[in-house]
Design a protein around this nucleic acid. Structure first.
Lengths: 376, 376
DNA sequence: GTTAGCACTCGTCACATCAGAGTGCTAATC
DNA sequence: GATTAGCACTCTGATGTGACGAGTGCTAAC
């Protein structure tokens, strides 16, 4: 039940036109604008067939046709061609990312900003899931009588710290000793691994076996590990969607905004998507059935995986947007290659890299499961 | 030109009614609902006078009256009475804040959530401006060949760290030495102070005088100080406003949402407001002229000042909301009293307190200037 | 000073009308 | 057999109209 060449042409014309103008497209305008060498009547007949096959829908009898999710899927899988980014967009991406290259979280945020500016859609970017991150060392530092800082450093340079207050006496030496012990115990293990095994052990029952000091530190240690697993989510351009006719009704706009109010839930959803450029259209999404969601992944040190994405109505410029996202994620991955110590001479510093040290509106990552159609 | 007792009664009745129902209120309904002992005609006459004095407006001839900003101001300053929170709300606040008492940023976020849940408005909360924070110590830790961590700890337990990569060779000892030197140099000075003086000095020109190692570290040190000055902003309940008739038009809703898209700008604005409970109504705001903005401040360790706030239409329950905010900020300030090392016996741990260590969508705080009317 | 009565204003809602866009079908044409 | 012209039909959206109701503002009476 393949489509004829002419049907494909007509379908592509309808998609192009509808993506551009957001209005149901009629047979006459197709015939006029796209030189297919046939009359409107013929196009009407083909459209009728395409509708029967599920590629087009009809808001009402006397309106033109609108592409269905199925049509967009066909377009994304088979019809669309990779677009070359404009020089302007390329320059913009390069410049803006370069400006903040040395600060990890800021770079990620800029990526989200860029994405929403270029696509005029809502976008997001998240820092990598760190399930696979392994512990490099643990350090305890005294601040004050009763107050100390617990610091966990990951192999990829992630740092997370907690200020904790305890009633157990300690000295510089006892802290150093505990730091060393803990480092020896946990070094090289993944955060997930440590967290699971330690929680199962039920620290509480074990406390007598530990030093009093360690017993005081352990609960915070576990919570800090959890913090470290957190993913930061940056959202940009949410209000762009107000410009789209799809969201001219207050209810639609409201639904859209409420999606993002639950950042935690949203983060989970996004983490669960496959790697690479993934496009899910309309009904293919389990929640936002009238949106298209495109996500792409970048790598840190070739290992940890972070995500960026755009969300908009199913009517969007799939070709441009996927190309932009590919370019952007390649650029990001390139930025985040840990090159090891270079030996470039000269200037004293400096590529420094603010670690992922914070605890904002995030959730723990859960790694990759599958619920999405893959771009074929 | 004082208002008569009866005029005040009528004005109060109109405000109460309008706040409740969001519809222009007519003389007849006032006479019926609020037993003022006079006829609608009399009320009409008084309303006409009140309008002339600027307390009421008239959307059109045959509609009822609506309170003006001036009326709300009068109400807030003179008419409204403090409300007692419901036991339910109090319990909710106490419980929810207690649950996260030991984690600073999370507590702040919960405060914003509570505020939007209880008031059904959009709310925000920000971590304290740390201009006045003083440096406690500085520490450099080796991670790897070429990679090290710079950590700055403030007197109030704030911790900020940066992972930096340098080409200069170092040993554990040289890092320790530099840590000590820097600590001696900067200990006890405020972040602002250090930042200003060091930037004026123009580090670059000074580098030869320093060790190569210190020269490599200084730029990151300054940037980390800047990070430390950042204020975290949490926003909640933005979508609540869709429930309000004031925002049933897409354009109004859009304007509202766009306000918050620029987090940095918004943070600046909010930091600039006076301390305490501050109410600015409609035109009293320079930007959001059709909104009321209520902010309140809490203290950390009786010193650092953070802010929470709600934003909504000028039509809001001023009495309830200001009372809630007072209760909430008192509760927060109480939570964040650093009590020094307590000597409660028993349980090993644990009041730990995640430091303000992150670098999300924030701006540096600029302290308190004045642009707001004060609650009388 | 207060009130009843009444004319007047204005916005909203329901309903009818009309133009325009586009289809679907039929019959003619290539 | 595929294509096309022609035409009736459908549906939406814009425009206009009239009835209704809420509320005022004024005047005259209490």
């Amino acid at each position: 039940m393949d489509l004829s060449e002419r049907q494909l042409q007509i379908l592509q014309a309808i998609i192009t036109d509808y993506v551009e103008n957001a209005e149901p497209v009629g047979s006459r305008s197709i015939a006029k604008k796209y030189d297919l060498g046939v009359s409107p009547a013929t196009i009407r007949n083909e459209m009728s067939d395409l509708e029967e096959m599920g590629y087009l829908t009809h808001p009402h009898t006397s309106a033109g046709r609108v592409p269905s999710d199925k049509a967009y899927r066909l377009y994304v899988n088979n019809l669309m061609q990779k677009k070359n980014l404009s020089a302007k967009d390329k320059r913009m991406i390069n410049d803006r990312l370069a400006a903040s290259r040395d600060e990890f979280d800021r770079t990620i945020r800029h990526a989200a900003e860029l994405l929403s500016e270029i696509t005029n859609l809502a976008s997001f970017a998240m820092t990598p899931a760190t399930n696979e991150e392994t512990i490099s060392f643990i350090r305890l530092l005294p601040v004050d009588k009763g107050t100390l800082i617990l610091m966990i450093v990951g192999e990829s340079g992630n740092v997370t710290n907690t200020t904790l207050r305890i009633n157990v006496p300690y000295t510089q030496d006892s802290l150093d000793l505990l730091s060393k012990n803990m480092t020896v115990t946990y070094k090289g293990r993944t955060l997930d691994d440590v967290l699971k095994s330690e929680i199962i052990k039920d620290v509480g029952s074990d406390i007598e076996a530990m030093s009093q000091l360690q017993g005081s530190v352990m609960p915070s240690f576990l919570r800090t590990l959890e913090d470290m697993l957190n993913v930061n989510l940056y959202m940009e351009g949410m209000t762009n969607i107000f410009d789209l006719p799809e969201y001219s009704s207050i209810d639609r706009a409201r639904d859209f905004m409420e999606l993002f109010a639950q950042k935690d839930w949203f983060t989970q959803k996004m983490l669960a998507r496959d790697n690479g450029v993934v496009v899910t259209i309309g009904d293919e999404n389990d929640t936002v059935k009238d949106c298209t969601l495109i996500t792409a992944t970048y790598h840190v040190d070739g290992k940890l995986v972070g995500k960026i994405g755009v969300i908009g109505p199913t009517r969007m410029k799939y070709d441009e947007i996927t190309s932009i996202m590919e370019y952007l994620t390649n650029n990001l991955s390139e930025s985040f290659k840990l090159t090891g110590s270079t030996d470039s001479p000269g200037d004293a510093a400096i590529s420094d890299n603010t670690g992922n040290t914070d605890n904002t509106d995030n959730t723990r990552g859960t790694g990759n499961t599958n619920n999405t159609e893959d771009k074929g």
